[in-house]
Amino acid sequence: MTDFTPFASLIGGALIGLSAVLMMLAEGRIAGISGIASRLFPPYGDRLFPGRLAFIAGLVGAPLLYAAVTGASVVQTVSSNLVLMVVAGLLVGFGSVWGSGCTSGHGVCGLARLSRRSFAATGVFMAAGFATVYVVRHVIGG
């Protein structure tokens, strides 16, 4: 079980949205994590590599800052099934780039732009996520 946290989740979501808006204001681009991370690999079509690396470094550093400022530790319960996590990682990495976006690019920025493609993509990955957890927890695990 995890606690239902509507207020913290709403505020955290607003911070994510604010970051996406400021990215649009500063760089004129979509704050899509899969797009940013995948373009750390060649071929390079532009000169934005340092900014992309800095953004990812910010993501990596955020929990350290959070822990230092609040004194609270960041709770992350990660599966210790390494084979499962490798398969999950391959699917998430390949699928998000193949589909031109993940939860941030399609799910936040795309929906906010009322993009038809993002509504389709978000619907598909949500449905696939629900179905996968159902199978893992209630068909195989049940």
Partner: peptide, 30 residues
Amino acid sequence: ARLIVGPALFGIGWGLGGFCPGPAFTALGL
């Protein structure tokens, strides 16, 4: 087709591991 196949694979991976790309990077430090 890519817009259906990609998100379908991504969603399966998301449901297996509970990570999408952003949260995975925030978890690196731990």
